[in-house]
Amino acid sequence: MNRFPSLRSVLYCCAAATAIALAIPVNPASSIHQRAVDRPSYGAVPAMSSAVQPVVNGGLANNSTPATPGQPGAAQQPGTPQQPGTANGTQNATANEPIGPESWGYTNRKTSKLRIRVIDGRTHAPLPGAEVVLIETEQRFTTDSNGYTPWFDAPIFRNPKYRPMVAELHGQLGVIAYKNGYRDSIHLGIRMHENIRQQATVWMYKIGPGDRRIEPVLYQEPYHHLWLIQLADKFRQRSQIGEGPERP
């Protein structure tokens, strides 16, 4: 009487399964934290990069300590290349390649030179001694007698949510300006481009005797209108003819 499955076929299957199981590479330290260490932090700001600590003595460093505000120097400066021997540098070339959305090259860390000019919003006179904080990197600068901060490397961040639709033509940054006797000024949406020097003007308003509720002043810089045109054209149907190549 033939039984199915036979004892011999069962033994063969067990042996094959064991061989397959042994062939699978085992990574004893595969965890979310380890994967975070394996993968370079493309586009991550220094303040956030403290969440990804290098491996120390075969284990994870203590990453529970939050980033210390006002000490951007403690984290990696933007644009600093990865040094060999560090956690990221020890990975081979394949592991350093971007994964997922990072492979678009959209969030690679890029920097460009930027300086901020701070002026009095009423008189348009330059304001020396104002403190300017770059929000994304927590870098701090002080304006000189002409109201300018020194040139510094600022990251170029583009909003990744628009990448699958229309790539943004410029990145955006935000700064906050402080000066005694003036309202705080928050300036968001500073346009950042690769490979050029750029500057932005922050307007500050003096606190007067009649001011009771003193709150920050917000200035939001809009997207460049060339990109807005591209975004609108992207989703326009053929029946919705707007201004464009059809009617130059």
Binding site: H225, L226, I229, Q230, E243, G244, P245, P248
Partner: peptide, 14 residues
């Protein structure tokens, strides 16, 4: 006018 990207935009010349 804005025109379109990566194109000589001949129609604008016209």
């Amino acid at each position: 006018r804005a025109g379109i990207e990566n194109d000589p935009n001949w129609q604008y010349r016209n």
